[in-house]
């Protein structure tokens, strides 16, 4: 029996030796894991944006784009996020929606700007979507729902499935944990950017009310359920924190872009 015990330890030692010896090799660079993942994300991002750009008219108005760029710049700069990694697209649509796509594409519908009562609320939703991008939730969601092999086949010519991916990203929710993580991350982004997260919580809370006018166009809420609870979580998360708040856009600019999207 002693011999068997000794052999079992030897077997375990052999396994561990084999594992740790192999771990000394830089497999990720041999298989170009990061590069191929990045290439897949880039291709998917481009193909998906091609589909969305056909769905609505893209807004190129300088005032709107510059204002949104200012919001994104403030959030990115305060949180050491590379602003170049966020590719903003504004689409003229009445739906209240914003969503992140692979490779940092961020799509905002004009309906969302209309529904925001102040630029801080809009900054809250943008921070939430940037958090999804930074936490790599987009690719994880696609891998989970579609499978890696399907995603690869899309980028190599399986055109039919790309529409399905597009629908998945704009009209279905991330899982509860990812939403919560993105909310809390967004809340930190906002605090660092000197924006009170209370505004984001207010926006979520307002969406949870059954206002028939809002409900007509609300897509973001169907993809982001339990808004009331989420608003509460954000308030609780930042409770006790002293938030220094500074206006992100001046009143005149905000009024102007609100008029432009009407």
């Amino acid at each position: 029996m002693k011999k068997v015990f000794l052999q079992s330890f030897l077997l375990l030692a052999l396994f561990l030796f084999c594992w740790f010896s192999l771990a000394q090799i830089n497999w990720t660079s041999i298989f170009e894991v990061e590069k191929s993942g990045q290439e897949l994300e880039e291709k998917l991002g481009e193909q998906l944006w091609e589909i969305y750009s056909r769905e609505g008219r893209e807004v190129f108005n300088d005032d709107i784009i510059q204002s949104l760029d200012t919001i994104i710049h403030t959030i990115c700069h305060a949180n050491k996020i590379d602003q170049e990694s966020i590719k903003l697209h504004v689409l003229e649509k009445d739906e209240i929606n914003a969503f992140a796509m692979p490779n940092g594409h961020l799509v905002i519908y004009t309906g969302l700007i209309k529904a925001s009562e102040n630029p801080e609320e809009l900054a809250g939703v943008i921070s939430h979507e940037i958090a999804h991008i930074e936490l790599n939730h987009v690719m994880k969601k696609l891998a989970k729902e579609m499978g890696i092999s399907m995603l690869i086949s899309i980028t190599t010519g399986n055109g039919g499935a790309i529409a399905e991916v597009a629908k998945l990203l704009s009209s279905s929710a991330f899982d509860r944990d990812q939403e919560k993580a993105a909310d809390l991350q967004a809340s930190d982004y906002l605090v660092n950017a000197k924006i009170d997260p209370k505004h984001f919580a207010d926006f979520l809370y307002r969406l949870s009310l059954d206002d028939p006018e809002i409900m007509r166009y609300i897509t973001w809420i169907s993809t982001h359920p339990n808004s009331n609870d989420r608003a509460q979580n954000i308030i609780e998360y930042q409770e006790g924190n002293l938030v220094i708040s500074e206006p992100i856009l001046d009143n005149a600019t905000w009024k102007e872009i609100k008029t432009l999207v009407q």
Partner: peptide
């Protein structure tokens, strides 16, 4: 790795190769 926050790294690939050998 597929569904949560883990990532593909050298230790994981080495483990898979060890599994293949065994």
């Amino acid at each position: 790795i597929l569904f949560k926050d883990s990532t593909v790294n050298n230790i994981y690939i080495a483990y898979i190769f060890t599994l293949v050998i065994f």
